[in-house]
Amino acid sequence: MSGCAGIGGVVLAAGGARRMGGRLKQLLPCKGEVLVHRAARTALEAGLRPVWVVVGAQAQAVWQAVADLPVEILLNPAWEAGQSASVRLAAAALRRARLAGGVFFPADQPFVPPALVTALCEAYCRTRAPIVTPEIARERSTPVLVAASIFPLLEELHGDTGARALFDRIPPLPLHWDAPQARAEIDTPADYRRWCPEGATWQGD
């Protein structure tokens, strides 16, 4: 996809949140595949290369869930220190691969369409804005595209935060997106029941 030349993908799947009845969120099935697989597949389908999956909690189970995809695995043993450890690891990988930018995906947002990711990349190529985020129903959402100039800043993050810690300093370019499902997050058992009911078939946007 032309909009995504030189832009890599990062799926942040190292967290240990178990609010879903003791199950690791990134391994919950939704529409026929587990959430981490869905995020990695979306990144690949959007044309991002390479795609890294950062794993930490139950690392083996999580990377095994994406082993059928052409992704690279980043092991983050410091996942308990918060999301910044994963972001630092991924930013260093993006920098070493000399990419023009990277798109960071949470693993718990199952209805991000590949077209949204492509649109983020195209917005970046058009404007060279250092950070591009989707704006859905007037709210800032993820995935977040960051340009190479931002990688060193990401490598300095600490605590339980990601690129959003930079938004005050570097206001993101908003990319308006109309389909509100794209921002659906699976954060509670109620979200999960709502968005991933057994047997329901999501047809995409």
Binding site: A57, Q60, L75, P77, E80
Partner: peptide
């Protein structure tokens, strides 16, 4: 062995 006791092969 990861810090959470999970194994990586």
């Amino acid at each position: 062995m990861g810090p959470d006791g999970s194994e990586i092969t």
